[in-house]
Nucleic acid binder design. Sequence first.
DNA 1: AACGCGTGGAC
DNA 2: TGTCCAAGCGT
Length: 355
Amino acid sequence: MNPSQIPGNLLAWYDAHARALPWRTPPARERAGEPAPDPYRVWLSEIMLQQTTVAAVKPYFETFTARWPDVGALAAAPEEDVLAAWAGLGYYSRARNLVKAARVVAGMGGFPDTEEGLRELPGVGAYTAAAIAAIAFGRRAVVVDANVERVVSRLFRIEQPLPGARKAIREAAEQITPDRRAGDFAQGMMDLGSRICTPRSPRCDDCPLAGDCMARGHAPERLPVKAPKKAKPVRQGRAFWIEREGPQGRQVWLVQRAPSGMLGGMRALPDDGWSARADGSGELSLEGAWAETGTVRHTFTHFTIELAVLRIETAPDAPLGDGEWWPVSHLDEAGLPTVFAKAARLAQTAPERLL
DNA sequence: AACGCGTGGAC
DNA sequence: TGTCCAAGCGT
């Protein structure tokens, strides 16, 4: 075990095996005259990648950069449009903070180029600030995400459970982060974690760091040890599909959710309060003749919802508070969060059953 | 410090 | 089917 060999071995592996990704420039050794990474694209990708897989991010990154090619364009966009474009990606506070941060950056005339400056932007925490500083600005920064936690906890055989092990992991990561090419080192560690040092079945035979790994031969898949998870409660609720025949065809009543909290700011089907805040705001009371179309089951971060989807027979003129009539033929563009997109599909396809 | 906050893919 | 998990952040 010689930790001093880790950065060189990792960078050599990254030079040969780096994944090609839309937001990534080739490893520095090969860059030779190519433009430096665009901080806007690095920032946007890092926000999208928070707790989100590369496969899920790719199409959203392409859509966003085509529609808003630079931070000024994004800063000028209505929040409503950005939220709708974010729909389906999850963790919607990221989209709200994305707009806020874009406006701050546009007002500053460009991105901060230090970890401390980046850390001030809404939605940019310790990990993201370090990643942008290293990748976009070539600064030495210790980049610790879940991949690095896994790789480092194995390299140094840190047996203490998370989250308590974070301090020891950070100190170990600090030891192996090189002064030069910290951005490539960070991305190499993430590629290694994604393709070689995977959570369940690490491919140690293919690992460039196997010779320096203290967990080799000691069941590395055990690490990092994690605290047991809490069980998710199951809630029941109702969502309402309220339709009318409008001047340009069928329309459905959509509401805009409260600006913070679950699915904050997103368009949605009205519901009976299952998704409301703890203070009860957003609850609705309903009278009328409804038909049940079925039930959608959807799991969020901290609970599962069994959502009965009801279709109203005769729509009132202005139903259920603040909202808008939305053309059913363009429902995809409304930007419904996935749970409501599922409910909407069911409402349009399932046979009705009178209550 | 612990919890709220989405989603879809892998197994 | 269920369970785990992902380039975390804000409060």
